[in-house]
Amino acid sequence: MLTKKEQRLRRARQTRIRIASQGVARLTVTRTNLHIYASVISGDGSKVLAAASTAEKDVRATLGTTGKGGNVAAAVLIGKRVAEKAKAAGVEKVAFDRSGFAYHGRVKALAEAAREAGLQF
C-alpha cells in the first residue's frame, strides 16, 4: 500500500517524464500547509530561471501581519510574481508541472494567475 506522499510523487514522475520529452521550460508548483512555491526550470532541467514563494520576506509583508501563504489569494500573488520574473528572464512558453497535486484550489489559482500575467502553457 502506497502512502499519500508516495502516490503524489508517482503521479509527479509521470508528468515530468512527459514534460522532459517536450524539451520546454517547466513551471513547477509545490505546496505545503503554510506556503506555496513556484519556479520556472529550464528545458534541460539544469537551471532555475525564475522563482517565487510565500516564504519571501517582501511577499509576507504584502500578505499582511499574518503572512499566511496557505490560501488562494497568496497563490494568485505568487502566480503573477513568477510569471513576471519568467518573462523578465525571457521565458514565454512553459509546461505546467503540478508535482502530482490535484489541479484544484491553490494550484489552479496559481496557474490561472500565471496565464493572465502572460505565460503560455
Results as ranks from 00 to 15, higher is better:
Leu9Lys: 10
Leu9Trp: 13
Arg10Ser: 13
Arg11Trp: 03
Arg11His: 03
Arg11Lys: 13
Ala12Arg: 10
Ala12Gln: 03
Thr15Leu: 12
Thr15Asp: 14
Thr15Tyr: 00
Ile17His: 08
Arg18Cys: 09
Arg18Tyr: 10
Ile19Lys: 02
Ile19Gln: 01
Ile19Tyr: 03
Ala20Lys: 11
Ala20Glu: 07
Ser21Asn: 08
Ser21Glu: 10
Ser21Ile: 12
Gln22Pro: 10
Gln22His: 14
Gly23Cys: 02
Gly23Ile: 07
Val24Pro: 11
Val24Asp: 04
Ala25Ile: 06
Arg26Asn: 06
Arg26Ile: 03
Leu27Met: 14
Leu27His: 09
Thr28Gly: 14
Thr28Ile: 12
Thr28Cys: 13
Val29Gln: 07
Val29Asn: 00
Arg31Ser: 11
Thr32Ile: 03
Thr32Gly: 07
Thr32Leu: 01
Thr32Gln: 13
Thr32Tyr: 03
Thr32Ser: 14
Thr32Met: 01
Asn33Tyr: 06
Leu34Ile: 09
Leu34Tyr: 15
Leu34Val: 15
Leu34Gly: 08
His35Gln: 08
His35Asp: 10
Ile36Tyr: 00
Ile36His: 00
Tyr37Arg: 01
Ala38Glu: 05
Ala38Gln: 02
Ser39Gly: 12
Ser39Glu: 13
Ser39Tyr: 09
Ile41Thr: 10
Ser42Asp: 14
Ser42Ile: 13
Gly43Glu: 11
Gly43Cys: 10
Gly43Thr: 07
Asp44Ile: 07
Asp44Trp: 07
Gly45Tyr: 15
Gly45Trp: 13
Ser46Pro: 08
Ser46Arg: 11
Ser46Lys: 15
Ser46Glu: 05
Lys47Tyr: 12
Lys47Met: 15
Lys47Arg: 14
Lys47Ile: 09
Lys47Glu: 13
Lys47Leu: 15
Val48Gly: 08
Val48Tyr: 00
Leu49Lys: 00
Leu49Arg: 05
Ala50Cys: 06
Ala50Lys: 02
Ala51Asn: 09
Ala51Gly: 06
Ala52Val: 04
Ser53Gln: 00
Ser53Glu: 10
Ser53Thr: 13
Thr54Met: 01
Thr54Ile: 03
Thr54Pro: 00
Ala55Thr: 09
Glu56Cys: 02
Lys57Val: 05
Asp58Lys: 06
Asp58Gly: 04
Val59Thr: 04
Val59His: 11
Val59Tyr: 07
Ala61Trp: 06
Ala61Pro: 02
Ala61Asp: 06
Thr62Arg: 13
Thr62Phe: 09
Thr62Met: 08
Thr62Lys: 08
Thr62Pro: 04
Leu63Gln: 08
Leu63Lys: 01
Leu63Met: 00
Gly64Trp: 03
Gly64Leu: 05
Thr65Asn: 15
Thr65Val: 10
Gly67Thr: 02
Gly67Leu: 03
Gly67Val: 03
Lys68Met: 08
Gly69Ala: 05
Gly69Phe: 08
Gly70Ala: 05
